[in-house]
Amino acid sequence: MNKGPKWACRLAEATDFVRNEFFVEDKTKENPMTRSEQITQFINKTQLGLEIAPWHSPITPKKDGWNCLSVDIFDTDILRTRSQNDENLDPKLVENIEPVDIVGSASELETLISARGQMGQFDYIISSHNFEHLPNPIKFLQACGKVLKVGGMLSMAIPDRRGTFDYFRPVSQMADWLRAYHQNQQQPDPYQIFAHHAVNARYQGNIVFPQNIDPRGALANTKLRAHYAALQQQENQWKDDYADVHCSVFVPASFYLLMIELQYLGLSPLGVIQITPTGGAEFFVHLKNIGVQLQIDEEKFHQLRNTLMHAVIDEVASNSAYSFSLRQALAHEQAKKT
């Protein structure tokens, strides 16, 4: 019998269901993989790819033999200047910045690649801690479906709210994404900016922290009035300046849920291949460009959706203050019996 936490059992159950019903391939290696290996496990260096905003930490750098184009909102010179002026950045990392091949926002990926005449020519797209910043995720996913070949991969590293400054924020819902999509949102709106800052958390001054420590040490910032004042000011002029914030917030199960709902609604051509459990403060997702609208069994879809909804609740609760206290009490009782 599986004695793991209920949330892990439910997510494993959902994964097995998708593997059986939605043509999921499982190529996970038995041996532990590095972070880079996790993200690149479904691609190889001979294929043509795109990496979104790699900055100073490219996952598929040309210098290592990858046939990959870099996409960034800044050109190479600006990236290097910004990095050199960043006091918190190790100067050695500036050397890792590779030439930017395509200058522009990932939100406009379809326009950028169409202008180059390369639609449908890419084997993969890599993104690390970029997707959550996109104001219109559905638009980006649809663009990926047009930029990638059929069978092409979108592989991403995504932060888990439970171990980051998003700790106090609720996970993103389909309604959030649909509103941004139907309004053709081009940049974060004042309310997304407010949500990012108003409960931005620190744990002993850190923006990333382990999930197994006492979460009562996580503290929200104390500038609520200031952020509300900024919201009121931005309501009338927010389109003038772009704010870099987390527009979406996830745990693995909530991301999984959004992906299968989009596929069910016919809003994304990308199918789930693999979503890993969280390691540190991030998890990895691998989506395949199926290229067609699947005929999804209604009963099986709603069974999976319900399973994932419960998994979301379980994951979110897994490192709450109450759960931590329960684990401490259980450990104390077990210690008394030994």
Rank of each mutant, 00 (worst) to 15 (best):
D244I: 11
D244P: 11
D244A: 11
D244W: 13
V245E: 00
V245K: 00
V245G: 03
H246L: 05
C247I: 06
S248V: 07
S248H: 11
V249T: 14
F250Q: 07
F250R: 05
P252F: 02
A253H: 06
A253V: 08
F255P: 02
F255C: 10
Y256Q: 12
Y256N: 14
Y256K: 14
L257K: 05
L257I: 09
L258Q: 13
L258F: 07
L258M: 13
M259Q: 12
M259R: 03
M259G: 07
I260Y: 00
L262T: 10
L262C: 13
L262Q: 08
Q263D: 02
Q263M: 10
Q263I: 07
Y264V: 04
G266N: 11
G266R: 07
L267H: 06
L267F: 00
S268C: 14
S268K: 04
S268N: 14
P269R: 07
P269M: 06
P269D: 14
L270R: 00
G271M: 04
V272R: 01
V272F: 01
V272L: 09
V272P: 05
V272T: 13
I275E: 03
I275S: 09
T276I: 11
T276D: 10
T276Q: 06
P277N: 07
P277L: 00
G279W: 02
G280C: 03
G280D: 06
A281M: 05
A281Y: 07
A281E: 12
E282A: 10
E282Y: 01
F283M: 07
F284A: 09
H286D: 03
L287R: 13
K288G: 04
K288H: 04
N289R: 10
I290E: 06
G291V: 10
G291E: 08
G291N: 06
V292S: 12
V292P: 02
V292F: 08
Q293N: 13
Q293R: 10
Q293W: 01
L294R: 15
L294P: 11
L294D: 15
L294I: 12
Q295Y: 05
Q295S: 13
I296N: 04
I296R: 14
I296H: 05
I296S: 03
D297T: 11
E298M: 04
E299H: 10
E299S: 12
F301L: 01
F301H: 13
F301W: 04
F301V: 03
H302K: 08
H302R: 09
Q303I: 09
Q303T: 15
L304N: 01
R305C: 09
R305P: 00
N306Y: 04
N306G: 12
N306F: 05
N306R: 04
T307W: 02
T307S: 07
T307L: 13
L308N: 13
L308E: 11
L308Y: 10
M309Q: 11
H310S: 15
H310Q: 15
H310I: 15
A311S: 14
A311H: 08
A311Q: 07
A311V: 13
V312W: 02
V312M: 06
V312I: 15
V312S: 11
V312H: 08
I313Q: 03
I313D: 12
D314M: 08
